[in-house]
Nucleic acid binder design. Structure first.
Length: 747
RNA sequence: GAGCCCGUAGCUCAGUUGGUUAGAGCGCUUCAUUGACAUUGAAGAGGUCAGAGGUUCGAGUCCUCUCGGGCUCACCA
């Protein structure tokens, strides 16, 4: 007999073990094959690819949300007898992981510059290996019915091979190019980022009005003046007509110099004095202006380096950090009488690194890019044809907007932890490439390849290699295989999203034989809306490019989980809900139900302790209703055949509920389905029907059937408690199906 | 500046082809309780569905505008 209260802790791990023993999550298992055969639904496949969490991160409530929603979809499909698979995996999470690892290095008094890249990669590999079980274990604790036999990691050899194949194909199709352009560079993280990875923070700064020959101009970045290559005014600005096309002499901190004045529409006559200095290598607008006026202006000058310090080109200000140099320059300008005025408390947006929060420097760096126009157009076409359905409060419109405005994708990252670009530089042809490596004495050495080779062997350079910076326009080879001794491989790694954008097909191609044809295109991609453009959009682009088909038919975007007051959860606010704590305290079913009930695609959801308690109470209610029905069933055997007054009503309503839940789940109305189940089970089945059955108005056996139906309907939402009860029924030999997880969905 | 989303009970939120008397959880009031469950049951209070206008036999739901809140993108050097 059942206990009077359901104690989740006493059941959950055993139940999960039971599912694994019956191989319930594997579409090829006997139990699932039999189910499909019985339901005659063998043809229809249902596949979900799990958004791979960072391999070494503990889960947060967002992960619990995705596990809950995806598991509901998957369990529902499986019980309907569809050929169902949910493929789990973890992500190496390039910059995120390297960032964490570098913090650890710092604690040990080390830095990444002390190691050659192979050694560093191995160290991070081991570190991730030690921690990678965390995420996987926790996903299991959340009840995920994923097929662990098909688990993949983004750096698995076979995965990497396919990812590289895609890149080689893209290169052959002319979609890859290398160019010197301004990139968003984080000097702290030491790598470039795509536009999507840059945050904007409002700051209060000073606007400096500086004398430039006959002009005064306003700038927030006086320290970049050594990189000026021209001045610009609006072509319609009457004040400056006579200067357009002229050279003006400017008195600067490092002596006098000349700047040409150009006319360009991008200059706002209203702002400042209507005169702008053109500093192409340190400002995106200026770089664009320079490109438009290339034949009128000299070559740009780089005066900030990749560590955020001024270069030799800044004369006596060389080696100063940007912020320090700004103060110094302003002070010197003032002393020389070149500073006209300073507007304090000027507000503008500063670009900051999404990862570390430090200012992003626009810097010139030759990088590899992917042409996106053809890729995005193909996605738009599929959207137009209705081949992709997006569930999530207007995010389909946002997706479209992004697809229409996306710029070429910078895929180079200056980090070690990732998939290295299959780009090769022939040594003789690249004598001017800048190389950094660690020699046998652990000394860090930089210089031109040609010069270094005079003192060092190519072997020791290769062994200790940290970084290659090939010239603009350098010749290179794209090849998955090492083309030979005479080549050096590019040191940049792919943007993490380059590999994860291929996740739906690489996980299937490199899995059990036949999986790709069997499960691709996948049915539904489920993830948080905040990575719509990072991930979902790019999966669509890459999936269609590589396979000709959309990688998934549906996109379900869940919202962010917020605290009881609707505030974002953050460590500093101390309002973070740890899913594992909730699971421990109230049970995993309660956690899942509380997250999912009344949730709506694309909209955020608040949860509080009360919500978890309410859901916990539901699991207990389920337990006790079952207990009662089992007791009466045993006691009143003789009454089982008797017809009662409300039998017909009961059966009809029960069927209606099953139909409605099925309809809701098919339409991905998960929050509504959960809410309906909650109310129908509690307030109709328990409060009403059980009471009526006590009075002899509903037949006992019918009540038992009703219980089975509710256990099945609730199973995707609350898999543990429903299975725990079901196993009691199995023990009593009053049901045929051995495992609820692989039982038939009610009709 | 552009786009998107939201505004429904004291609080947090559901309400998807427009259709009886608008729902849930928590909170509140009163009562009940040895055939399961106090992690319970019954009854109840609480809503001009932000506001205005429109379409319609009928609007929380569709359209327009206004106000309020949030998010994202782009930013003026």
């Amino acid at each position: 007999m059942l206990d009077t209260q359901y104690q989740a802790k006493n059941h959950e791990s055993q139940i999960y073990k039971l599912w694994l023993e019956h191989d319930c999550f594997n579409p090829d298992s006997q139990i699932n094959q039999e189910l499909r055969k019985n339901l005659k639904n063998e043809e229809e496949s249902f596949s979900v690819i799990m958004p791979p969490p960072n391999a070494n991160d503990p889960l947060h409530v967002g992960h619990a949300m995705f596990v809950s929603i995806e598991d509901i979809m998957v369990r529902f499909a499986r019980m309907q007898g569809k050929d169902t698979v949910w493929i789990p995996g973890t992500d190496h999470a390039g910059i995120e992981t390297q960032f964490v690892f570098e913090k650890k290095l710092k604690k040990d008094g080390q830095s990444r510059f002390n190691f050659d890249r192979d050694t560093l990669f191995k160290m991070i590999w081991d570190y991730v290996g030690e921690n990678s079980a965390i995420a996987v274990d926790q996903i299991k604790k959340l009840g995920a019915s994923a097929d662990w036999g098909r688990y993949k990691f983004t750096l698995d050899q076979d995965i990497v091979k396919t990812v590289l194949e895609t890149f080689v194909k893209m290169n052959e199709d002319g979609l890859v190019y290398r160019t010197n352009r301004l990139v968003n560079f984080c000097p702290k993280c030491g790598t470039a980022f795509s536009n999507l990875e840059v945050d904007h923070k409002e700051q209060s700064t000073s606007l400096y009005y500086i004398k430039y020959g006959p002009f005064v101009l306003a700038t927030t970045r006086p320290e970049t003046k050594f990189g000026d290559t021209g001045l610009a005014v609006n072509p319609n600005d009457k004040r400056y007509q006579q200067y357009i096309g002229q050279e003006v002499e400017v008195d600067g901190l490092n002596g006098k110099f000349k700047l040409k004045v150009i006319a360009d529409d991008f200059v706002d006559m209203e702002f400042g004095t209507g005169v702008v200095k053109i500093t192409p290598y340190h400002d995106f607008n200026d770089f664009a202006a320079w490109q438009r006026h290339k034949n009128e202006l000299p070559e740009p000058i780089q005066i900030v380096d990749f560590e955020g310090r001024l270069t030799e080109a800044a004369g006596k200000y060389a080696h100063l950090k940007v912020a320090v140099a700004r103060e110094q320059v302003a002070k010197d300008l003032e002393e020389k009488g070149l500073l006209v005025k300073v507007e304090k408390n000027y507000h503008n947006n500063l670009s900051v690194c999404y990862r570390c929060g430090n200012p992003i420097e626009p810097l010139p760096l030759p990088q590899f890019y992917i042409k996106v126009k053809g890729l995005t157009e193909a996605v738009v076409k599929k959207l137009d044809q209705g081949e992709i359905k997006v569930f999530g409060a207007g995010h389909d419109k946002i997706l479209r907007h992004w697809l229409e405005t996306l710029e070429d994708w910078n895929i180079s990252r200056q980090i070690v932890w990732g998939i290295r670009l299959p780009i090769w530089y022939e040594i003789d042809q690249n004598q001017n490439a800048m190389i950094t490596f660690v020699d046998e004495q652990k000394q860090r050495i930089s210089g031109k390849l040609g010069d270094l080779l005079k003192k060092h062997s190519i072997k020791s350079i290769k062994n200790g290699l940290q970084n290659i910076s090939a010239e603009i326009g350098a010749k290179y080879l794209v090849s998955q295989e090492n083309p030979g001794e005479k080549y050096l491989q590019e040191t940049d790694t792919f943007d993490t999203w380059f590999s994860s954008s291929q996740w739906p097909f690489v996980t299937l191609i490199n899995n059990k034989p036949g999986d790709f044809d069997r499960f691709y295109p996948t049915t539904t991609m489920e993830t948080a809306y905040d990575i719509l453009m990072f991930w979902v959009m790019r999966m669509l682009m890459m999936g269609i490019y590589k396979t000709g088909k959309t990688p998934f038919k549906n996109v379900y975007l869940h919202g962010l989980i917020r605290d009881s007051k609707g505030q974002k959860m953050s460590k500093s606010k101390g309002n973070v809900v740890n899913p594992m704590d909730i699971s421990e305290k109230y049970g995993t079913d309660a956690l899942r139900m509380a997250l999912v009930i009344r949730s709506s695609a694309g909209l955020d959801k608040s949860v509080s302790d009360g919500d978890f308690k309410a859901a916990r109470n539901l699991s207990n209610k389920l337990w006790n209703a079952s207990r009662f029905i089992l007791i009466t069933k045993a006691e009143k055997k003789e009454e089982q055949a008797k017809n009662c007054q409300n039998d017909e009503l009961f059966s009809k309503k029960l069927q209606e509920i099953a139909k409605e839940i099925t309809k809701n789940l098919n339409a991905l109305q998960i929050g509504v389905a959960a809410d309906t189940l909650y109310n129908e089970f509690w307030h109709w089945f328990c409060d009403q029907c059980i009471e009526e059955s006590k009075k002899g108005l509903i037949n006992q056996e019918l009540m038992f059937n009703g219980l089975q139906v509710f256990l099945k309907l609730l199973h995707p939402f609350m898999p543990f408690v429903t299975e725990a009860i079901w196993q009691e029924l199995v023990k009593e030999k009053i049901v045929d199906e051995k495992v609820l997880a692989s039982s038939a969905w009610p009709k």
